[in-house]
Every structure is written in structure tokens, then in C-alpha cells.
Design a protein around this nucleic acid. Sequence first.
DNA 1: TTGAAAGCGCTAACAC
DNA 2: GTGTTAGCGCTTTCAA
Lengths: 355, 355
Amino acid sequence: MVRVTITQVAEYAGVSIASASRALNGQIASAETIAKVQHAAATLGYVADATARSLKLGRTHQLAYAVADIGNPVYVEMMTAIERVVSASGYRLVLSSTGTSSSSVDVVRDLGRGYVDGMILSPLRVTDELLAALAKTPTPVVVLGRLPDGTSLDTVRADSVTAMRLVVDHLVAEGRRDIAFVNGPGDTTPGTFRRDGFNTAVTAHPLVSTRSIDADDFTIAAGYAAARRVLDGDRRPDAIVAANDLIGIGAIRAAEDLGLTVPDDIAVTGIDNTELTGVIRPGLTSVDLGADERGRVAAELLLARIAEPSRAAHTVTVAPALVVRGSSLSRARAQGRAPHHETDSTELDEERAAG
Amino acid sequence: MVRVTITQVAEYAGVSIASASRALNGQIASAETIAKVQHAAATLGYVADATARSLKLGRTHQLAYAVADIGNPVYVEMMTAIERVVSASGYRLVLSSTGTSSSSVDVVRDLGRGYVDGMILSPLRVTDELLAALAKTPTPVVVLGRLPDGTSLDTVRADSVTAMRLVVDHLVAEGRRDIAFVNGPGDTTPGTFRRDGFNTAVTAHPLVSTRSIDADDFTIAAGYAAARRVLDGDRRPDAIVAANDLIGIGAIRAAEDLGLTVPDDIAVTGIDNTELTGVIRPGLTSVDLGADERGRVAAELLLARIAEPSRAAHTVTVAPALVVRGSSLSRARAQGRAPHHETDSTELDEERAAG
DNA sequence: TTGAAAGCGCTAACAC
DNA sequence: GTGTTAGCGCTTTCAA
């Protein structure tokens, strides 16, 4: 089919293009004109060209969510939450995956070209270059994740320090005394803050020995490899704190491959509380960082900024909540539960404990 | 930051906007002009407005991937494959999630408005309404999935009949004699063709008794619920064929909750061969429908059609491959393997057998 | 090599 | 209530 323009509609209806436009957009027009124009549009199969309309109006009604790794379910969860808010306000959400193609700097520049009215960014690394690009872009931005103090941007962040404290306190309470932290790449934003959070959390337990290692990625495969390095050593920890659920799952697989039982021989915990935690056995204890809530708030902040561009920058921190499942129970408690009864028929989760 | 236009760049550089445009786009221009304009653009922080450029050029350099349920990892896999091809050709890929917001008809209409140069569609249901919308849209389309015969559109499809035959033959070979098919919603395209495939496949085994049930969704939760209905009955099957991996995982959980052991008491298989199959224990036997390949081919077909709009419609069918893991082995074979040695350190998969 | 000007398709003054 | 016209920001003839 060939594209039909408003000029052809106007011609067909025998009115001016202005009248056609008005009739189509619900502006003031006579009933007769509206009828003629709508009939013409329907017969011709007219759909207004979004590009021309955007150019004229200066708004695209498109918002972008830019994320490095859409393969991680936690970002899908965020996107779903964002989509819900955004589409309710008449915007379309487009996803820009920064992972496979260009760096997030390019993405910011690209989105600054004007095909979106605003963007939500989940950067894995916050470089000076990125901050410069963000400062320069004319497009409203909300950043999901930590930014340097003093940066004047709308931000939504998780509370890594509390998250790690919840996990560490829980493991110590369950009797663990030698905890290994398997982080993602240490130069990423989540990597940095989760490491700092872990280090802070363990100072409260001076008798517990600890160590840290970086996985090459926040993925199952990288978590597996890193956990193998930890577990192959001669001093085997009795608990692994993973920087996210994917790494945690990799760690569980690594432990099993070495003939270890989780949680009897070693406890494992994750972060993000993705759906995966309930898919594996034992269920993976995790900290819910409020992905859904963070996505929702980010979308609301963005809409608010678009409505009022000069408003002050807001920073919202979402509180984490520990969700205990089988992977971190003490030996005694674990034996009190039959593994195959862990599944709850509705949630597929074992239990939830607010943090 | 306020948006800067090419007019301001031209003014700053002391040249006409035509020269500015030429200098910026690598057209013919004197070295001096280029230098002045580039300097001006850099100082002013100019980025060309994509909307205006698109209106002028008639192309957006954007492609869309429209999918109902991005929560299903198989679609993420497809998207990744598409993104790879598309970005190599200088296009941006935007994701339109049709699930949460509007129907796919609305999405097609919306994308027909012109902010994308083409779209790849994974419709869950192919209605007459959708076909009409597809026939009318001026935007090139490639459909992932089955279309009615005679529809003249580029299409990439999986081979459900072969896929189901691979699974059923395998289960029968492993000694299963009472197979329950847990489908997704029967009115969806995958639901229809997987059901038909199953029915065809079992005719080759007249001694095997079978039955079918629809889950409400292609999700873990829906699979769990449907499997419970199957397993709670008095005649318990010795194998469950799930219409996708998520349903299969739900079925494994359901079996475990009833105290059944997989695969000893009951075998379970999935479809799609997503990463999840290697995450759970036992590993889920699944049929790889070639999501990566289908995504790649779809992207190539779309690019080809954009380059040559009048070319004949192509239909490409991608061959499936059975991947056997622990969930479907016969009792004897399963006992030959220690469950915690299933994991391969690189692939996290147990074994792969081409179909 | 450069500048003036047209025009992509649309909406919104503005005058009638 | 309707038509004429300007113009969103850009690229590209067309003359010079």
C-alpha cells in the first residue's frame, strides 16, 4: 500500500487541508465536514504521518528505556513497570538495548536527536563521558542507579548498603561464619555499590571471615566460573553472597558440580528477587531491590519532568526487602523442610520476609 | 540544555544553512567551510533533529520488533538476534511490547504511521483483523510465525510438526506410554500448531495413550496450574509434553509438589530450548526451534524488502532440533547419571542431540 | 563551491 | 466554520 497524505483526504472530501486536519483531530468543524472527511479518510485508508506531526508539534509521544542487558530478567521487570505507567499517559515506550550495539554514551546522544520526548536510563557504568552527555542532552532523562553526588538529575536508586546488610545479617544468624562475596564486574555501578555494601555489612560481624571476587559479568555463566574459583580453593566458605540472582544461580550450579549440597554444605544468596529464584531448587534467597517500584517511580518522575521541565531534580531511594528461600537456611532448619514442598502453588515462592 | 538547530550553526559559522548541512553530511564543500561548520557544531553542541531529517528523507532508520510477551526469554533471544543484524546495517531497533498495552492490530496501525521503516511481528494470534491491518499498512512487515496459506507476506516460521514428532518419538523410545500434552492457549498461533503437531506425532504410536489440556498462558504459573489438573486426576500420565519451556518448568514444579520425581515417575519436556532449561534440575529436555536463526532471517528478509519493496514474498522455515536433558530420560538411563553432574561447565547443558 | 528557495506532511494562527 | 498561509528543521535541487 502506498502512503496517503492529508492533502489527498482533503481533496477527496472536497475541503481544505486545514478543515481535514481539524475534522480529524476533533477540533471545531461542522458535522457535515467531519462526516465527509472521516469518510474520505476511511476510504483512502489514511493514517497521519507521525514524523510530520512530531516535527510540527515538537513532541513524539515516545519515551525510551535504555538498558545494557535485556537478558537479565530484572530489567524486563523494570520495563514492564515503566510501560504500564507510560502507556497510561498516552506515550509509547521504545526499548534501546545498549548492550549489543553502541555504548550508552552513543545511545544518549542518539536519543537526544529528538525521536523521544524523554528517556529512562539504566547505565551499567557511569563514566564522566556519560555524565557530560547527560548534561548536554536536551531530552529529559531519569537515571536508574547511583549518580555522583551533586549531579542534578532525576534519579531512582536501590539501597545497596541495606540490601547487603540484610543478606549478611541473615547468613550470620543462620550460623554462617565464612562468607565469600561473588560480585559482578567491580567497575560497574551496581558492582561498586554492592561491594561497598558488603564491606560495610561485614564490619558488624568481626568474627566472620570474608573475601570477595569479581565475576566477569552479571550472568549465570560468569557466576559459575567465579564461584568455581572460590570453591576450588583450599579454604572453602560456608556461604556465597552473589551480586545478583544470575550469579547466584551460577554459584549453586558450581557448588553442585563439586558435589556440595545447598544449603547444607554451603549457603547461596542472590540479589534482585527475580522470578528465577523460584524456578530453581533449592529456591534462591534474594533481596528484592524493588525493580517494579523503581520502574514505576522512574516513569512518574520522567512524566513529571516533561510536564514541568524546570522543576527541581528528585532522588528517590527504594527500600530493599529480604526474601528467604531454601538456599540460605541453616542445616537444622533446612532439614525441617522437605525440598519438594518448597513450592507455593500461587507464588512459586517459599516464603517472604520483609526487610 | 536547549535544542540547537542547523540555522544557529550556520549563523555561528557564517555560512548558509545549505552549506552547513552539506558540511555536516560529508557532501561537497570546501575544507574551510567544513572546518568552520564543524567547529560551530561542536561548540554549540549541535545534533541533527531526527524528526525533521526523517520527514525530509522519508526514512527513519528505525525498525520495530513487536512482540506480545517480552517476559518469555525466547523472544528476548529473537530480539537479540534481530538487533545484531539490524544494527550492523545502520538501523536502530525499537521494541514494541504488544502485550501490556494495545492489541497487535493497534500496534501495526501505530507502526504504520511512519516512525519506523519496517517491522518484525511475533503475533500470538493471527486474526482476520490483523491480516487486514497488515495488508493495508504501507510499512514493510515480516511476520514471525504461521500465516494462512496464500497470504503474501515475508514469513519466518518454525516447524511445529517436526518439533512435536521429535519429542514424542523420543519419549516413546524412552519407554513412555501415556503422554499428556499441556498446551498454551489453544486459540493462539503457537498453540494451534503445536497441538496439531502433537496430534500428528502421536498417530505414529497407536499404542500410546494421550490427552491434551490448555494452560491459560505460556507461563510458569499457568503451566503449573494446568499440570496440577492433569496430575491430580486418577490416571496419571508417565510423560508431560509442554508447549514451551515455561509451561514445562511449571509442570516439573507441579510434579514435585505432588511428591513425584522427574524423570523417574514422570518425564517432562519443553519447547524453545531457552536458557532456563539448563537452570533447573533435572535439566529440561526441549526442542530448539531456532529462535536465534529465525530472528536473524526475519531481520534479513526485512532489510531485503526495504531495499526492494516489490520483491516476491519469501517464506523461510527453520528446522528444529531436539536437545535431550535429564527431565525425559528413562528410569534406567536416569539412574546412570548423578544429577549434580549434569552441568557442563561451559554450556550449563547436559547434552545436545541434533534433530 | 555556495546561497536561495522549495518542500517533506502536518497543525495552528489568522483572516474571512 | 472554513480557507489561506506560515513554519516546524532539515536536505536538496537549481542558479549563480
